[in-house]
């Protein structure tokens, strides 16, 4: 199965073309230019858009706008190509790229998205990693001092385990179906709804 995978939820947009588990190419850029990467991946692999059999897209949590760019891209591709889509949590993809690690994504406003038993948003200080826990992701880099003080271990800033890699989205993708059934994972309500309540 030829799968195009991408995730634009974090500052680093990742994309990969994977054929029956074999990674044909993987690239990184920004959300706005993710289609340039996708185009390059197909050209380098000598693949045609018609040959794509599934799209695996990162659904967040992350930047709201970034998540939407990824999902709108996936829905547009699905509409035009008639291929099914599967959503993959950005946190799950990070975890798959660093086995045993706790994924921590920067959620801005002094908070992080983490995958404890389920995806949550909380302040870095509320995160109590057991000593020696490996933490990866943009949130782990940003709140290194807080998390290390709590006993976490964090790879060097440039370590590739800190960014989601789309090969893992392709690997984790299950239940390919209609694109509109794949929903974003925001984990936060709009501010306007908070003040109303």
């Amino acid at each position: 199965m030829l799968i195009l995978a991408f995730d634009t939820a974090t500052d680093v947009a990742t994309s990969a073309l994977v054929s029956d588990g074999e990674v044909l190419g993987e690239r990184r850029s920004r959300a706005v230019t993710v289609l340039e990467d996708i185009d390059a991946l197909l050209r380098q692999a000598g693949a045609h858009t018609r040959e794509l059999e599934g799209i695996a897209v990162g659904i967040g949590p992350g930047s709201f706008t970034g998540v939407r760019i990824g999902l709108a891209t996936a829905r547009g591709l699905a509409l035009a190509l008639g291929v099914p889509v599967a959503g993959v949590s950005t946190l799950d993809a990070l975890a798959a790229g660093a086995l045993g690690a706790l994924p921590v994504v920067d959620a801005r406003r002094g908070e992080v998205f983490v995958l404890e038993d389920e995806p949550r948003v909380l302040a870095p200080a509320e995160l109590r990693p057991s000593p020696g826990t490996l933490c990866v992701g943009s949130g782990a880099v940003r709140y290194r001092s807080v998390l290390e003080a709590a006993g976490a271990e964090i790879p060097a800033d440039q370590d590739e385990r800190h960014v989601p890699r789309a090969r893992f989205h392709a690997q984790l993708a299950r239940d390919f179906g209609p694109a509109e059934a794949v929903e974003p994972m925001y984990l936060r309500v709009p501010d306007a709804d908070k003040t109303r309540k």
Partner: peptide
């Protein structure tokens, strides 16, 4: 994003 994806495809 949706328009670019449709046009590219």
């Amino acid at each position: 994003a949706a328009a670019k994806a449709i046009a590219w495809a």
